[in-house]
Nucleic acid binder design. Structure first.
Length: 881
RNA sequence: GGGUGAUUAGCUCAGCUGGCUAGAGCGCAGCAUUCACAUUGCUGAGGUCAUAGGUUCGAGUCCUAUAUCACCCACCA
């Protein structure tokens, strides 16, 4: 079959992907004895479509999967999607609002029906996008965070943690979003600076400041630092009467070190129901807490005439009333503070006290390495003791810092989309209540005066289920249907869990280090006694071309992979996403990079076309032809070197460096030098060999074009590149390779001289260099020489870059320009010689530097001196002439 | 308030454990062209590696300050 002139990716990609998928190449096999390599794909949120940031992780993980597969390992790359509770919920609620209805009107069942419709549609789109990126993941093991088997595991872990006392239910202050009517975890809150007004009011004998007068109805404590001399006369627990918004209140003095005496008057009143800090002060001193604002953001009856009003409406009216009473003593309209919002839906967070489920991160109830530790301690230990390695390493510091600030994790959400909490409550006619937590609903027992059990209406934080992802996905779904088996049984009996866990590496963006990575470590160590993965590779985020975040508010900044792929090809997109990128650092999108890599694919294509033209029927993959020419030996050496370098970089997750080496191997070594050289010498066997191995090296990066070439050239073998093996190139003669390096040097100098001096095709003369005779036609062709001839003594310009005696046959008398050029080169070379000599003259350098380095310097000096000598000789000769 | 990263060619960025006579892509200048590829080839210009100190035989790389930018965490009434 013949390769057309230009590579048109869109003509092949779908067929090639189908070929791979059909071949079973993606499917892992836990029954083999091969070494394992496993990755759990970070499940994308089922919120519609995949974006360019998904392309980044699909590319990186696919490179790892394909490389390890070529290395002969049994590879499992397990794909999946996430139900993304709050994110999806926010979308559905927005759609309902657009229709003029809401979730309460349509009810829980209808809401869930619509949600399931939406996510199934999203999922279909997203899975086809993963295929378009070339993802070689094991579709037979596709998982979804709401699968029955995964739901079973979620409940098992919840119940286990509850029984171990690690999950508890309690009244705590939480981040309440009145828009979505749910609370969210600390990590889901985002802060933005806002300029607002800070009011100062008279409060009894004190002055207090607030940006939120509407929360102040129930304030009846004034707090100050115990060491604040200004308020020495007031003792902790003193009471006084103050005129306040709706008449006089009795207030109590509290002394607490949390107060900053330098801020404002050094005195504040507290609102424990609606402030995290106030809540903690109140807890510490056992103070009363009163709710002022309801869960829809409206004032409660305690506000009297303001009851039922929205915060925004009430605030100015309250200030006005206090001002009328003469209690307003100051306003600062330039007060800057941070406003808390839900990162999903952007609702303004109102701290509220609610009865919620929490995971206790400080209780020492986790068995890890034979000791009882807290979840926090295990999180620290696995990193400190090297069970898990973070790349880049600097994120370890960020990780530890996060753990230091970690508080109990609030896991219940008041939304309907998600894993329902496996807890049931019932009340007795005498008013007592009971809680039951378990895998199955409890059985009603009406005779005793109990009302029916009712399940907690709340669902779990999405991250509670994704935290189990590396292993809940490996549990056999059929086994998971058997209620008689325990969680430990499920782990023990599932072949995939036994074969692939802990996973080899987790690859994800640094932005979800806390949300996901840390929580996987937390839950997995607890539930399975294993770490979820050994290495975490964190990639950077991709920004718009101007370096700013891609954002929905600037639609033109968003790059859709599906706009790039048809035009440039998936391979070009993949390589653009890894080129020049280092772990943990963000990168800017660049159309230039896509074009460069489209060109690279075309280069591969044309190398194949050339080889196809000269080798048709002469080469079968897997051959080991003998090198004959200097160029053969040279290119085999380069291939050997490239294989080593790529392996080393890929083993160490240095994708960009691996790719850069590949790029230059293919373009410079193979295309520009070896193929050009081969045009003068018939080496079709080695050409075929080099192409075969080059395709293997390039396959992890550019799977489509390489497989397309493979299928076309080797169509009669029915082998697949994806399941072939990583090159083990044969050794070649170093001495012969060096000869080719000499040829390259001679060609390069000749080309430069011809160019710079404006020469027409000169002749090249040489004395007594056998390999020049052997490669005369190559030399003539590549250096564009009229002829290459052996002489007894040469005339013209003597080449200075080689120690062999070669001359370009030109009229030296006219070449003042050449003399000037030589003079320049001499100056440059002298500088290098001086530098190297200086280094070697330095006794401590020779004594302290590694021997190899010193030897290298000596050699560099010898070469530099020889080169300088040649330059000088030639220069002298010219000046004499 | 605490922390992290960045600062290298006109632009966007690599440079891992110090050995650099500092690289890539794009861009730029010049030349070439029915020979695999103009999605090309060849040649070339372009950098006191932010600044100031220090450690070292040797610093783009390590340390200490400073400046600018970006981000993360905490959050004060």
């Amino acid at each position: 079959m013949q390769l057309p002139k230009t590579y048109e990716p869109s003509q092949y990609e779908a067929d090639i992907y189908a070929l791979w998928e059909k071949s079973g190449a993606f499917t892992a096999d836990p029954t083999t004895n091969k070494e394992r390599f496993s990755i759990a794909m970070p499940p994308p949120n089922e919120t519609g479509t995949l974006g360019i940031h998904h392309s980044v992780f699909l590319t990186l993980q696919d490179i790892m999967a394909r490389y390890n597969r070529l290395q002969g390992k049994d590879v499992l790359w397990l794909p999946g999607t996430d139900h993304a509770a709050i994110a999806v919920n926010a979308i559905i609620e927005k759609r309902l609002a657009d229709e003029g209805t809401n979730k309460h009107e349509i009810g829980r069942d209808e809401f869930l029906r619509r949600t399931i419709d939406f996510v199934s549609q999203s999922r279909g789109t997203m899975l086809s996008q993963m295929r378009a990126m070339g993802a070689s993941c094991d579709w037979s093991r596709l998982r979804y965070t709401m699968d029955p088997g995964l739901n079973r595991v979620v409940n098992e872990v919840f119940v286990k943690m509850y029984n171990d006392g690690l999950i508890y239910r309690g009244h705590r202050i939480v981040n309440w979003d009145p828009n979505l009517e749910t609370n969210i975890s600390d990590d889901e809150v985002e802060y933005a600076e806002e300029t607002t007004t800070l009011y100062t009011f008279k409060y009894g004998p004190f002055e207090i400041s607030t940006a939120r007068p509407e929360t102040k109805f129930g304030d009846k404590y004034v707090v100050m630092h115990p060491d604040d001399k200004r308020y020495k006369q007031y003792k902790h627990g003193d009471t006084f009467t103050a005129e306040w918004i709706n008449g006089p209140v009795t207030a109590t003095v509290i002394k607490d070190e949390a107060i900053d005496p330098k801020f404002g008057t050094g005195v504040m009143t507290i609102t424990p129901w609606h402030s995290m800090v106030d809540f903690e002060i109140a807890e510490q001193h056992g103070l009363e807490k009163t709710q002022i604002i309801d869960f829809h953001g409206k004032l409660l009856p305690i506000a009297q005439e303001f009851a039922g009003m929205d915060i925004a409406d009430a605030r100015p009216k309250i200030v006005e009333k206090l001002a009328k009473k003469g209690l307003l003593v100051g306003t600062d309209t330039n007060y800057v503070h941070n406003i808390a919002r839900n990162e999903r839906g952007k609702g303004i967070i109102e701290p509220q006290i609610r009865l919620q489920w929490f995971i206790d991160v400080t209780k020492a109830s986790v068995a890890w390495k034979g000791k009882q530790r807290s979840l926090k301690q295990v999180l620290q230990d696995v990193m400190r003791e090297g069970d898990i390695e973070l790349l880049p390493k600097r994120f370890e510091k960020v990780y530890f810092h996060w753990i230091d600030n970690l508080r109990d994790w609030c896991i219940s959400r008041q939304i309907w989309w998600g894993h329902r909490i496996p807890a049931w409550y019932r009340t007795h006619t005498d008013g007592t209540t009971e809680t039951y937590v378990g895998m199955q609903p409890p059985v009603d027992d009406a005779s005793e005066g109990w009302n029916q059990w009712e399940q907690d209406p709340d669902t779990l934080d999405t991250w509670f289920s994704s935290a189990l992802w590396t292993w809940s996905t490996l549990i056999d779904p059929t086994l998971a249907e058997d209620p008689k088996l325990s969680l430990a049984d499920l782990l023990r009996l599932s072949p995939d869990f036994q074969a692939y866990h802990p996973t080899s590496v987790l690859e994800t963006g640094w932005d979800i280090l806390f949300f996901w990575v840390a929580r996987m470590i937390l839950s997995t160590t607890y539930a399975t006694g294993q770490v979820p993965f050994k290495t975490v590779y964190l990639h950077g985020l991709i920004r718009a071309e101007d370096g700013k975040k891609m954002s929905k508010s600037r639609p033109e900044s968003i790059i859709d992979p599906l706009d790039v792929i048809p035009k440039y090809g998936t391979d070009a997109l993949r390589m653009a996403l890894i080129m020049g990128v280092s772990p943990g650092n963000d990168q800017n999108w660049g159309w230039g990079k896509v074009e460069a890599n489209r060109n690279f694919c075309n280069k591969l294509w044309n190398i194949a076309r050339y080889v196809e033209g000269v080798t048709s029927d002469k080469y079968t993959p897997g051959s080991t032809p003998k090198p004959r020419t200097a160029a053969d030996h040279w290119v085999l050496g380069k291939l050997h070197h490239a294989t080593e370098i790529l392996s080393k970089h890929l083993d160490n997750y240095r994708f960009s460096e691996a790719y850069e080496h590949l790029y230059h191997f293919v373009w410079d070594d193979v295309a520009d030098w070896y193929i050009e050289a081969s045009k003068s010498q018939d080496d079709s066997e080695i050409l075929g060999y080099v192409l075969e191995n080059t395709l293997k090296l390039a396959h992890p990066f550019a799977p489509f074009v390489t497989e397309t070439i493979w299928q076309t050239l080797y169509s009669d073998t029915d082998s697949l590149l994806i399941t072939s093996t990583w090159p083990k190139p044969q050794q070649a003669s170093k001495q012969q390779a060096t000869q080719f390096e000499e040829l390259k040097t001679i060609i390069a100098e000749t080309r430069a001289l011809v160019k710079q001096l404006g020469l027409a095709r000169p002749n090249l003369y040489y004395t007594d260099v056998p390999f020049l005779a052997e490669n005369a036609s190559l030399l003539a062709r590549m250096a564009r020489l009229e002829s290459v001839r052996e002489v007894s003594s040469g005339t013209g310009l003597q080449l200075t870059s080689t120690h062999h005696h070669c001359w370009l046959d030109v009229d030296t008398g006219m070449l003042k320009a050449y003399a000037d050029k030589l003079a320049e080169q001499i100056t440059a070379q002298e500088r290098i010689v001086v530098q190297l000599k200086g280094r070697l003259a330095n006794k401590s350098y020779v004594a302290n530097a590694p021997k190899a380095i010193v030897a290298q310097t000596r050699q560099q000096l010898a070469e530099a001196e020889a080169s300088l000598e040649r330059l000088r000789t030639e220069h002298t000769r010219f000046q004499a002439a």
